[in-house]
Protein backbone atom coordinates (compact mmCIF):
# COMPACT_ATOMS: atom_id res chain seq x y z
CA UNK A 1 0.00 0.00 0.00
CA UNK A 2 1.51 3.34 -1.01
CA UNK A 3 2.17 6.24 1.32
CA UNK A 4 -0.56 8.38 -0.23
CA UNK A 5 -3.13 5.61 0.04
CA UNK A 6 -2.24 5.02 3.69
CA UNK A 7 -2.60 8.74 4.35
CA UNK A 8 -6.04 8.75 2.74
CA UNK A 9 -7.21 5.80 4.82
CA UNK A 10 -5.74 7.36 7.96
CA UNK A 11 -7.44 10.66 7.17
CA UNK A 12 -10.85 9.04 6.68
CA UNK A 13 -10.38 6.95 9.83
CA UNK A 14 -9.42 9.95 11.95
CA UNK A 15 -12.31 12.01 10.54
CA UNK A 16 -14.85 9.26 11.23
CA UNK A 17 -13.37 8.52 14.65
CA UNK A 18 -13.39 12.17 15.70
CA UNK A 19 -17.00 12.58 14.61
CA UNK A 20 -18.11 9.43 16.45
CA UNK A 21 -16.21 10.41 19.61
CA UNK A 22 -17.67 13.90 19.67
CA UNK A 23 -21.19 12.67 19.08
CA UNK A 24 -20.78 9.87 21.61
CA UNK A 25 -19.51 12.25 24.25
CA UNK A 26 -22.26 14.75 23.66
CA UNK A 27 -25.15 12.33 23.26
CA UNK A 28 -25.23 11.22 26.90
CA UNK A 29 -28.78 11.49 28.20
CA UNK A 30 -29.66 14.15 30.74
CA UNK A 31 -29.40 12.82 34.25
CA UNK A 32 -30.37 15.80 36.36
CA UNK A 33 -33.79 15.84 37.93
CA UNK A 34 -35.30 19.24 37.31
CA UNK A 35 -38.17 18.96 39.72
CA UNK A 36 -38.92 21.64 42.26
CA UNK A 37 -41.57 20.47 44.73
CA UNK A 38 -44.04 20.56 46.38
CA UNK A 39 -46.57 20.60 43.51
CA UNK A 40 -47.85 17.32 42.14
CA UNK A 41 -49.43 16.53 38.80
CA UNK A 42 -50.14 13.80 36.30
CA UNK A 43 -51.20 13.30 32.70
CA UNK A 44 -52.77 10.06 31.47
CA UNK A 45 -52.87 9.29 27.75
CA UNK A 46 -55.69 7.31 26.17
CA UNK A 47 -53.48 4.20 25.96
CA UNK A 48 -53.13 4.23 29.74
CA UNK A 49 -49.63 5.71 29.90
CA UNK A 50 -49.38 7.99 32.92
CA UNK A 51 -46.71 10.63 33.40
CA UNK A 52 -46.28 12.23 36.81
CA UNK A 53 -44.00 14.87 38.29
CA UNK A 54 -41.71 12.01 39.37
CA UNK A 55 -40.96 10.99 35.74
CA UNK A 56 -37.14 10.87 35.54
CA UNK A 57 -35.44 12.84 32.80
CA UNK A 58 -33.42 9.75 31.88
CA UNK A 59 -36.60 8.24 30.42
CA UNK A 60 -38.33 9.52 27.31
CA UNK A 61 -42.11 9.49 27.08
CA UNK A 62 -43.45 8.69 23.61
CA UNK A 63 -46.61 10.72 23.12
CA UNK A 64 -49.16 10.12 20.35
CA UNK A 65 -49.39 12.85 17.70
CA UNK A 66 -52.95 13.49 18.80
CA UNK A 67 -54.84 12.34 21.84
CA UNK A 68 -57.26 13.27 24.59
CA UNK A 69 -55.49 13.22 27.94
CA UNK A 70 -56.75 13.34 31.50
CA UNK A 71 -54.75 15.68 33.68
CA UNK A 72 -54.63 16.76 37.30
CA UNK A 73 -52.47 19.18 39.25
CA UNK A 74 -52.19 20.25 42.87
CA UNK A 75 -50.16 23.17 44.24
CA UNK A 76 -50.51 21.63 47.72
CA UNK A 77 -51.30 25.13 49.00
CA UNK A 78 -54.34 25.86 51.15
CA UNK A 79 -57.24 27.04 49.00
CA UNK A 80 -57.06 30.85 48.82
CA UNK A 81 -59.68 32.81 50.75
CA UNK A 82 -59.89 35.40 47.97
CA UNK A 83 -58.80 35.54 44.30
CA UNK A 84 -55.03 35.69 43.91
CA UNK A 85 -52.67 35.98 40.99
CA UNK A 86 -50.58 33.17 39.64
CA UNK A 87 -48.41 32.53 36.62
CA UNK A 88 -46.73 29.71 34.81
CA UNK A 89 -45.73 28.31 31.48
CA UNK A 90 -44.91 25.22 29.48
CA UNK A 91 -41.75 25.63 27.42
CA UNK A 92 -39.65 23.52 25.06
CA UNK A 93 -35.89 23.50 25.73
CA UNK A 94 -33.81 24.45 22.68
CA UNK A 95 -30.06 24.21 22.01
CA UNK A 96 -27.71 26.75 23.62
CA UNK A 97 -30.03 27.29 26.58
CA UNK A 98 -32.88 28.68 24.50
CA UNK A 99 -36.52 27.88 25.03
CA UNK A 100 -39.81 28.18 23.19
CA UNK A 101 -42.89 28.95 25.28
CA UNK A 102 -45.73 26.69 24.16
CA UNK A 103 -48.33 28.14 26.51
CA UNK A 104 -48.31 30.43 29.53
CA UNK A 105 -50.88 31.52 32.09
CA UNK A 106 -50.18 34.83 33.71
CA UNK A 107 -53.37 35.47 35.71
CA UNK A 108 -53.47 38.80 37.58
CA UNK A 109 -54.58 38.93 41.21
CA UNK A 110 -57.72 40.92 40.35
CA UNK A 111 -58.95 38.29 37.90
CA UNK A 112 -62.04 36.31 38.78
CA UNK A 113 -60.61 32.86 39.23
CA UNK A 114 -61.79 29.69 40.79
CA UNK A 115 -60.50 29.66 44.35
CA UNK A 116 -58.92 26.24 44.49
CA UNK A 117 -55.46 24.76 44.67
CA UNK A 118 -56.41 21.67 42.69
CA UNK A 119 -57.25 21.45 38.99
CA UNK A 120 -58.15 18.52 36.75
CA UNK A 121 -59.95 17.72 33.54
CA UNK A 122 -59.41 16.48 30.01
CA UNK A 123 -57.53 18.13 27.18
CA UNK A 124 -57.47 17.23 23.50
CA UNK A 125 -54.35 18.12 21.53
CA UNK A 126 -52.96 17.59 18.05
CA UNK A 127 -49.26 18.04 17.37
CA UNK A 128 -48.83 20.11 14.15
CA UNK A 129 -47.78 18.11 11.08
CA UNK A 130 -44.51 20.02 10.76
CA UNK A 131 -43.23 18.74 14.11
CA UNK A 132 -40.90 15.79 13.36
CA UNK A 133 -41.93 12.38 14.72
CA UNK A 134 -39.75 9.72 16.31
CA UNK A 135 -36.93 12.14 17.10
CA UNK A 136 -34.55 12.28 20.03
CA UNK A 137 -35.91 13.54 23.34
CA UNK A 138 -37.43 17.01 23.61
CA UNK A 139 -37.35 18.45 27.13
CA UNK A 140 -40.55 20.21 28.13
CA UNK A 141 -40.53 22.22 31.35
CA UNK A 142 -43.66 23.34 33.19
CA UNK A 143 -43.42 26.12 35.76
CA UNK A 144 -46.11 27.39 38.14
CA UNK A 145 -45.75 30.26 40.61
CA UNK A 146 -48.42 31.07 43.17
CA UNK A 147 -48.32 32.74 46.58
CA UNK A 148 -44.54 32.93 46.49
CA UNK A 149 -44.15 29.24 45.73
CA UNK A 150 -42.62 28.12 42.42
CA UNK A 151 -42.90 24.56 41.17
CA UNK A 152 -40.91 23.25 38.21
CA UNK A 153 -41.23 19.90 36.51
CA UNK A 154 -39.45 18.71 33.38
CA UNK A 155 -40.22 15.73 31.15
CA UNK A 156 -38.39 14.35 28.14
CA UNK A 157 -40.75 13.29 25.37
CA UNK A 158 -40.89 12.54 21.68
CA UNK A 159 -43.80 12.26 19.29
CA UNK A 160 -44.64 8.72 18.17
CA UNK A 161 -43.91 7.92 14.54
CA UNK A 162 -40.99 7.82 12.15
CA UNK A 163 -38.91 10.87 11.23
CA UNK A 164 -39.79 10.56 7.53
CA UNK A 165 -38.55 12.84 4.76
CA UNK A 166 -36.93 15.46 7.00
CA UNK A 167 -34.53 12.91 8.47
CA UNK A 168 -33.54 11.59 5.02
CA UNK A 169 -33.11 15.13 3.73
CA UNK A 170 -30.89 15.92 6.71
CA UNK A 171 -28.84 12.77 6.14
CA UNK A 172 -28.42 13.60 2.45
CA UNK A 173 -27.32 17.18 3.16
CA UNK A 174 -24.90 15.92 5.82
CA UNK A 175 -23.32 13.43 3.42
CA UNK A 176 -23.08 16.08 0.68
CA UNK A 177 -21.46 18.59 3.04
CA UNK A 178 -19.11 15.88 4.31
CA UNK A 179 -18.07 15.14 0.75
CA UNK A 180 -17.42 18.85 0.23
CA UNK A 181 -15.29 18.92 3.37
CA UNK A 182 -13.26 15.95 2.08
CA UNK A 183 -12.79 17.81 -1.21
CA UNK A 184 -11.05 20.53 0.76
CA UNK A 185 -8.38 17.95 1.50
CA UNK A 186 -7.41 17.51 -2.15
CA UNK A 187 -3.96 18.91 -2.85
CA UNK A 188 -3.69 22.05 -4.95
CA UNK A 189 -1.85 21.72 -8.24
CA UNK A 190 1.66 23.12 -8.02
CA UNK A 191 2.33 25.76 -10.71
Amino acid sequence: MGLNRRRRFAALGILAGTTILFVGALAAPATAEVIQPPCTGSVTFSDGTTVTEKQPLTETVEAPASDTVTYSGDTTLDPPSEPEGFSGSVALALPAGGSYVIVDWPVPSDATTEQTSVTDGTYTYTVPDWVPKGTGPMEVTATHTQRGQTCVVAVNFSVEGSPGGAAWLGAGLTVAAGAGMLAGGIKKKVV
Partner: peptide, 10 residues
Protein backbone atom coordinates in the same frame (compact mmCIF):
# COMPACT_ATOMS: atom_id res chain seq x y z
CA UNK B 1 -34.16 13.67 13.86
CA UNK B 2 -32.84 10.10 13.94
CA UNK B 3 -33.24 9.96 17.71
CA UNK B 4 -29.54 9.88 18.60
CA UNK B 5 -29.31 13.08 20.65
CA UNK B 6 -31.86 15.26 22.48
CA UNK B 7 -33.07 18.55 21.00
CA UNK B 8 -31.32 20.65 23.66
CA UNK B 9 -28.03 18.77 23.28
CA UNK B 10 -24.90 20.96 23.22
Amino acid sequence: LWGVIPLDSP
